[in-house]
Nucleic acid binder design. Structure first.
Lengths: 126, 126
DNA sequence: TAAGTGTATTATAACACATAGTACACTATA
DNA sequence: TATAGTGTACTATGTGTTATAATACACTTA
């Protein structure tokens, strides 16, 4: 479910954020569903509770989840909309690296399309 | 030419790396051309020479540039090929964020295509 | 009452980033 | 031969991020 690589250079809390988002897209969670508690998820992952709490805080800031003191953390029904162009600026240097490394525009586009469909999960295949 | 934002959260040396790569793709440099020296570029950008040296070291590791002791740094004629799938893994979380933020697959693909063409620079429009 | 929630705080350690200053070996040129 | 310019290496310092550890508090549910 939540796949974390402790040896990755990507910070653990960011991996948690990404993992939650992908789980949502793939339909593993629905609006209103409860996420694992901070302490439970931290023991599941073998990670400090503060690290999970940091991920949840950021996810709430983005409107992906909603926290209720004393009760738990739940999936939001309407995540904040994001600025497409600013997010695309993060992709730009990766694309530049791919092109310098010999990748063709067509191949890159095909793979991005495959990635997008993969993120749509199983429900989209019905 | 080399556009650097000292206030960005992206490390300066990474911005230099990206800047050099994009300049190459856009045709501002050809194989064999000399890059600004470490000390010269550092004063141009208002940055420590060690920071520029770090960027150049990484660019050489990727085969983008070649350094000759005592002479300078030059554009390589054959950058190392990159692993497409591993690079795409960096794009995955960004795409997930876009989709959660309400972006449609079609819009995302259109923008990625536009980015790719933008990186091809002016020579491709002849 | 007891257990489980999110949250906050302080402290510590490790690492990345950037700067500063210095030094060395090399190359090109006056 | 000097001089200036090149990449490179090193130590030191400061700052910020990441992650852990250990508590503590207020809240909710059973």
């Amino acid at each position: 479910m939540f796949n974390i690589d402790l040896k990755s250079s990507l910070p653990i809390y960011e991996q948690v954020i990404n993992s939650v988002k992908e789980s949502l897209l793939k339909g593993y969670f629905k609006s209103g569903d409860a996420l694992p508690s901070v302490r439970k998820l931290s023991t599941m992952l073998g990670v400090n509770p503060n690290t999970v709490a940091k991920a949840y805080t950021e996810l709430e800031r983005q409107g992906v989840i909603v926290t209720v003191k004393g009760r738990g953390t739940f999936i939001s029904d309407k995540p904040n909309s994001v600025d497409i162009s600013s997010e695309l600026e993060k992709i730009r240097p990766i694309l530049a690296g791919l092109k310098l490394g010999g990748a063709e525009n067509g191949d890159i586009l095909t793979n991005v399309k495959r990635l997008l469909e993969e993120l749509d999960g199983e429900e989209s295949k019905l």
